[in-house]
Nucleic acid binder design. Sequence first.
DNA 1: GGTCTATTACCGAACGATCTGTTTGTTATG
DNA 2: CATAACAAACAGATCGTTCGGTAATAGACC
Lengths: 188, 188
Amino acid sequence: MTVRPVSIEDTPLIDALSRVIGRHGFEGASLQLLSDAAGLKRASLYHRFPGGKDEILAAALDRAAERFAVMLAPAFDEGNPGDRAALVAERIDEYYDGGQESCLIVALTLADDERRSMAAPCLSAWADAFAAIAVDAGVAEAEAIERGQDLVAQLEGALVIASSTGDRAPFRRAIARLARALTSPSVL
Amino acid sequence: MTVRPVSIEDTPLIDALSRVIGRHGFEGASLQLLSDAAGLKRASLYHRFPGGKDEILAAALDRAAERFAVMLAPAFDEGNPGDRAALVAERIDEYYDGGQESCLIVALTLADDERRSMAAPCLSAWADAFAAIAVDAGVAEAEAIERGQDLVAQLEGALVIASSTGDRAPFRRAIARLARALTSPSVL
DNA sequence: GGTCTATTACCGAACGATCTGTTTGTTATG
DNA sequence: CATAACAAACAGATCGTTCGGTAATAGACC
């Protein structure tokens, strides 16, 4: 077996690159910015990702899907729906660092149609996880699905506001309300 | 007085340019794309906007502020808060074409820090207008402000979802719920 | 242990292409 | 005659990408 004297491991590397794409968008994330954030020269990035920017984006999306799966896992566990919702809310808060972190999904909104649709599965998984909790809390399925979507929208919008104005209060409120909004028997 | 044989008037020109910036972001909106959307060659765009892309962005933001003022005007009228909210909701729905239109504010989220902050006043005006309606409906001021922000987040997030997945249902629901959410005496 | 070789990560330098920003001159319109 | 629009080109920067070379390590062989 060969030994690889890497200067930065794959996981933190991809996380750093994801942050740049999330903050500047796919087109705005120039190799210069990516290189700076990674601590690797442009040519070295091509050694890690021979497919160029597209492969970097694919890696970022794979990593996002992986992190989303962990983040949303409690939604599909057994147990009290309220507790599961609270745990998911806590992990979402961690993932987005209390609203400071920008969202890769939002960033891809400004890319080509092809790349824009790459984020859709993440969004669906998110809404589905919320809906699963609501269903377990006794909410009718049709309404549970709507609530899931709407609460994802609430969080995404709060992230946009945080990015634009720096005000993280809407995100904090959305996180704080999440469990109640998912499990409440009445309308949202 | 001079005569100006323009091929496209300022207002529709700026609207077309705004759409391009909203869809591709400021960096992604190359002069090629802007030129195509405007039906004017690059050199002609420089004739209309001698300051280049920055002047185009400034014009787009001025126009957005103007359209926002019209859209939100009923919030500061007199009369039934519920009716005013419904009227504002209708105009928001028009502005974003039922969720099809992408939001310039979201697009600027991915720009430089300087340009990113340019969208903040629009966002504040929006939330303030919502808050004004809620206050007139008898909601305590502190909660009214929060509701305003949260409902803006709901709408922005719904626009993100529409951009990503093409599903405009969350936006439609947010519009439909707006008046009730603003004027309801209970919590959101 | 010492030496060779293969493999790997990384980097410097350059490539062609595209972008922004601008200029000059021409055509067309009112 | 003034203005709008265009064609064509320019420099300079930056884009994504490729190629060749360097340093460092691992295993093989003596």
